[in-house]
């Protein structure tokens, strides 16, 4: 466990808290992509199948991971549930039009082609890695369609992007300090994912420096 990993995880948790807070205080989910949130729920459910056969008491790290996994699964399901019920009338359904099968299909094919072991759990795990890399796309698509980005939605995506960037630094750290630590599959997907935020980051930072509202061209 290094500083980048912890900071990355905290940034991830912060992004979820920001999103929940935005919905609760403004009583709406305008600008939030339900499709992206459902993809994240699917990502966590397929990533953390190992919860079923891992003893959380094995080590402090296992305990930490178990708590975080349960937190990610439960909050993502909770967000989807809230968007589909309480905040349904504020959801930009027509604008949230990214076609999700175009993400799930290729992620499934990639997982069948590239996985670490020939077991169902490993293929499903690889699927979750590939799907996470692209799950933000409906959200970015929705913002681009809406044009102006609400402050808090901007913070949410920024925190989520920061999580990916910090994880990449964590990999660099580990590759340097832990002999034999190599994770090509995770690294490739993670770098693709971080890259998807590059354009958003550029506009986010520029809007902050100019003190203007964030607009995506």
């Amino acid at each position: 466990m290094n500083i980048f990993r912890i900071a990355g995880d905290m940034s991830h948790v912060a992004s979820i808290a920001i999103l929940l807070l935005k919905m609760k205080t403004s009583r709406n989910c305008a600008g939030v992509s339900l499709k992206t949130q459902e993809l994240y729920a699917l990502v966590f459910l397929t990533r953390y199948v190992d919860l079923l056969f891992t003893n959380p008491l094995r080590s402090p790290l296992t305990m930490y991971n178990t708590i975080m996994k349960i937190l990610f699964i439960s909050t993502s399901l909770y967000i989807v549930y809230q968007m589909r019920t309480r905040y349904k009338h504020t959801y930009n359904e027509a604008a949230d039009a990214f076609r999700v099968p175009f993400l799930i299909g290729p992620a499934a094919v990639a997982a069948l082609l590239f996985h670490l072991k020939n077991t169902v759990v490993e293929v499903v795990w690889a699927f979750s890695i590939f799907l996470e890399a692209v799950a933000i796309m409906p959200q970015l698509f929705l913002l681009q369609k809406t044009g102006e980005v609400e402050n808090i939605t901007g913070h949410y995506i920024f925190a989520l992007g920061a999580y990916r960037g910090l994880y990449a630094l964590n990999w660099v750290w580990r590759a340097f300090w832990e002999p034999g630590y190599r994770q090509w599959l995770t690294w490739t997907a993670g770098i693709v994912q971080t890259g998807l935020y590059a354009d958003f980051f550029y506009h986010y930072i520029r809007s902050k420096r100019q003190g203007k509202k964030l607009k995506l061209p």
């Binding site: 995880d9 190992d50 790290l61 991971n65 996994k69 990610f72 670490l116 795990w125 190599r182 995770t186």
Partner: peptide
């Protein structure tokens, strides 16, 4: 083939 890395990240 490649071995599955221990899943110690989230």
């Amino acid at each position: 083939g490649p071995t599955a890395a221990p899943k110690d990240e989230l």
